[in-house]
Amino acid sequence: MSLSPLAIVLLAVTLLLGVGFYGLLVARNLIKLIVVLQILAKAAMLAFVAAGYGQEHMGLAQSMVAMVIVADTVVAVIALALAVQVRRHYGTLDVRKLTTLRG
């Protein structure tokens, strides 16, 4: 099987997704978790580009990727604001310390 560009990009999507999942499971620093969320979002953007490429609908794909970029940046901003507040009130960014709510 010869690798088509599409196959390579799809591979990248799934790999980024895997890396992102791994990060979600092991990262303990809240800000690093936000980095991981960004990686996951990149996987999604790449998936749209791949889909647009495969369907020859790149304009549509691009518009969606642009939306995702913007929405994701907004989420990142809010997440970072939350992280700053967490640091202020918990004295740490370690999510393993954020376990007062359980059970």
């Binding site: 999507v13 997704l17 992102g20 979600l24 969320l37 996951l40 979002a41 996987a43 999604a44 998936a47 749209f48 791949a50 889909a51 647009g52 495969g54 369907q55 609908h57 549509l60 794909a61 969606m64 995702v68 989420v75 997440a79």
Partner: peptide, 17 residues
Amino acid sequence: SAAGSVLVLLGIAAVFG
């Protein structure tokens, strides 16, 4: 939520693709 949202996006991309 954000992780879920990414999965949704991947799903949409798969449908689109």
